[in-house]
């Protein structure tokens, strides 16, 4: 059992939790993930580590209620417990030696882009952090991101906060304005990561993406998270989650990640329906 020390609602469907997990906090590094189960019958949910504190043994996770299991997680109270919490899993991000970096986050991806930016910024790198959201009410971690970057560029799809633009537009402008980046790190929906890679490809800028594939065990056992990188099959859980974005077959990965969407939606509807029944009672 792992205690939820603090809980904060970031927007209508995004929640931050700080969990007591010293066995994870002791050695984890940016880019790695954990897997949790809400209760003894729960699904295994992989979540990238958003922040950690080695001294207090705390791990921060940020997630969206996208299916029945994450919805159930979001309903756990501060002081409540998570049944299982394992990690750190996956390879840490390779950030050493990067002097100037553009970090691109999309929506919930900002929760993972933020620790990457923070780690780089603390290592003395110059960081342009481009954060994209659908609209103002979905904006998360603005102050944190500002504190963890040299320059923060917020854009929204509808212009309700910052510029009305796509992250790729901002990135292209920054590159065209003469910023020469050692690397671009992109974390967000696959479609966004794909287009960030297409944006940087003509410039030959190394682009690292974090692949949030569907997983079961997260330890290399099931192969559900497999993807094609440079023509080879890789497992996001043990070979990644970070990969060279220019080598990824995004179209395949996007279709693979859509496999259980219908079942997830049905489970979510079922869960909400049950909640409604409980309220009626």
């Amino acid at each position: 059992m792992y205690k939820i020390l603090r809980k904060k609602v970031l927007n209508s469907n995004t929640t931050l939790m700080v969990v007591d997990a010293p066995h994870v906090a002791r050695k984890c590094r940016p880019g790695q993930f954990i897997i949790l189960r809400v209760d003894a019958e729960g699904e295994r949910i992989p979540l990238t580590i958003a922040d950690y504190d080695r001294k207090t043994g705390e791990i921060t996770i940020i997630f969206q209620a996208a299916g029945a299991s994450t919805q159930q997680l979001s309903e756990l109270p501060e002081g409540g417990v998570i049944h299982d919490f394992v990690g750190p899993l996956g390879q840490p991000s390779e950030l050493e030696g990067l002097k100037k970096v553009a970090v691109v986050g999309g929506g919930l991806g900002c929760a993972i882009a933020y620790p990457q930016a923070k780690a780089l910024y603390e290592m003395g790198a110059e960081v342009d952090l481009i954060a994209g959201f659908r609209s103002q009410d979905l904006l998360i971690l603005e102050d944190e991101m500002r504190a963890a970057s040299t320059r923060l560029h917020v854009v929204t799809d509808d212009g309700s906060n910052g510029r009305k633009a796509l992250v790729t537009q901002v990135l292209k402008e920054l590159i065209d304005a003469g910023n020469s980046y050692d690397a671009v790190i992109a974390i967000g929906p696959m479609i966004m990561m794909k287009f960030v890679c297409e944006t940087t490809r003509p410039y030959g800028i190394k682009t690292i993406v974090s692949m949030n594939a569907t997983m079961v065990d997260g330890t290399g056992m099931c192969g559900c998270c497999r993807l094609t990188v440079g023509g080879e099959t890789k497992f996001a859980c043990v070979d990644g989650p970070d990969f060279d974005g220019h080598l990824i077959d995004f179209d395949e990965s996007m279709r693979r990640s859509a496999m259980y969407k219908a079942q997830e939606r049905a489970a979510m509807a079922h869960h909400e329906c049950n909640l409604h029944k409980m309220e009626v009672k």
Partner: peptide, 26 residues
């Protein structure tokens, strides 16, 4: 020995191709 071996034939990443580990674990 938990790491599944795949066949390395075309089409292996279509949705509905499982490793036995994944199928049995689910």
């Amino acid at each position: 020995a938990g790491l599944p071996t795949f066949m390395h034939v075309p089409g292996e990443n279509y949705n509905g191709v499982y490793s036995a580990n994944e199928y049995l674990t689910r």
